[in-house]
Nucleic acid binder design. Sequence first.
DNA 1: TTGAAAGCGCTAACAG
DNA 2: CTGTTAGCGCTTTCAA
Lengths: 344, 344
Amino acid sequence: MVDETKVVENPITIEDIARAADVGIATVSRTLNHPEIVRKDTRDKIMQVVHELGYIRSGAARALASKQTFTVGAIIPTLNNAIFAACMENFERVLSRANYTLLITVTNFDRDQETMQLHKLLERGVDAVLLIGLDHSKKSFALLEKSKVCAVSIFGSRQSGKIPCIGFDNRKASETIVQHLVSLGHKRIGMIAGITRGNDRARDRKKGVISALEKNNLVYHPSLFIETRYSHEHGRQAFQTLYGQKIKPSAIICGNDVLAMGALFEADAHGIRIPDQVSITGFDNLPITEHLKPALTTIDVPSAAMGVRAAEAIVQKLKTGEKIKSRLLEANLLIRNTTGPIKV
Amino acid sequence: MVDETKVVENPITIEDIARAADVGIATVSRTLNHPEIVRKDTRDKIMQVVHELGYIRSGAARALASKQTFTVGAIIPTLNNAIFAACMENFERVLSRANYTLLITVTNFDRDQETMQLHKLLERGVDAVLLIGLDHSKKSFALLEKSKVCAVSIFGSRQSGKIPCIGFDNRKASETIVQHLVSLGHKRIGMIAGITRGNDRARDRKKGVISALEKNNLVYHPSLFIETRYSHEHGRQAFQTLYGQKIKPSAIICGNDVLAMGALFEADAHGIRIPDQVSITGFDNLPITEHLKPALTTIDVPSAAMGVRAAEAIVQKLKTGEKIKSRLLEANLLIRNTTGPIKV
DNA sequence: TTGAAAGCGCTAACAG
DNA sequence: CTGTTAGCGCTTTCAA
């Protein structure tokens, strides 16, 4: 704790302002928090002093006295996927406008990590927490319940009873993909899924594919279903594995766009024509996918909307106490050029 | 402030622990902060109670009493560019391991916005601040100076005297690109630059190109230099503009990879062969660029390294008071397949 | 409208 | 090694 730099970080306090403006500290506090209940001239005088002295309020003291930090925590798997980054960007923007600051922590898809992060956020006194999906550790749920902190989940499908969820139906979206493929005549369908353990979104996407397969009386070939981490490289590798099978799938559904792009790249590298030889689908609709050639058929996940809605709901709740309602947004299939009729 | 939900957020306090463990509150505080100076059995007893009661420390009270929040703020232009997202991911990881939490705010390349965000972070009592580049408002610098908060800048080139900078030489990197192009015989070189106003990185990259052009006795055609926002769409558009000129450039240098990809997409859409008809270069080395076909020639910006180094330096400084040294990291040219010899 | 004063929950001397 | 106590800077009754 030896540190000459942190001496008197922000020496000037509300008392200094009060003294300089010749008023009581309560009045200063009031003009800062509820200007309308302070007479205009005292208020003006105070604000002038505030600016002159470059006063910066102590959030810590404020939080301690008021039990509010004007801070919201988000616990996300990673920032390395544009889908989360975009979502956070919007989430932050809305929060920021309402004067909240965003605390971000990353779990790297590890639930225990998530629990620890949640604990830390709670210590920091966040007024609300944003979580991804519904798959959380018992301890996390216990913490949420005990702390009674305002919590919202996004990206998830189910209307979990535990915390309100502003998401979309991952499973249904997957089924839409299968339906589309089936309508093109595909029968032997494979999948490059994300790791489903501890990830309800990945699991729902996979389940959706399997159930839609069965609904269409198509056989589900476990050997054509690979689970792998989200990266271009893993997508490429998985594609190679699938396409290396004696009986190749005519269509490959990918758990997200990153995986799909990996598959596309690998196909391209081997001169495999898409969609003539294999159809490929993604999931997320990353901005770049529409520019690819062929443009990726994918699910348009409402990531920005979820970020915005979640932030709005949180701000609303924090301001008025209005309960947050779960809500399912649209996630539509975008048919582009990586899927096509099966060739006989 | 009417809100039945925020009643008794975390009712249990250090006093409850002290009482339940039959010790003084100071001892509880000690076992939580400096366990080594507490006798093992009292410590154990206390920790047991802590876990039993699910005690969560009040960061606000801690901060108020100790003048430390264990919180670091980052002010970045956007999360929508993978280069920043990746950098933040690494920054957060290192901070998190040292028990710091990351506060992220986004400016959307607006300096006034940045100043406001900085002010907010300072109110929140961040122990340190991360900034992008060296181009900040006077007010921002004043705030930094006055608050004496630990600040670090990344992505910048210059060894600014104001705040330590862990970056790389944007200008030199640009010159390398020109050099490469010149060695391939290119003479008529254009550029799709980012908006340089309020953005020293974009400015340095552009300056580097211009000065290298002059060094090589090539003429700088202002009409071949476009400044535009960072997006695929703007890249495409700018490419179209440049390639629509009566005398087309034989090489186009892009201010970042997003712009370069836009150019690539647009060229592709018009059947313009890269690099046969035009050479194109990027800047950043986004993960996807190596998978593109043709793979993008670009500058390998050490974004992850900057995130890690900055976080390490901050943690070090906060722990030991050790001053943060500015440092320039390597940013090398990656010659891939979007650049080739000029055809006569 | 304003001021005085009582905490908010914790850390860090200080004394034992 | 442990307990007592004085704040940290602010919000918020409660009176005036």
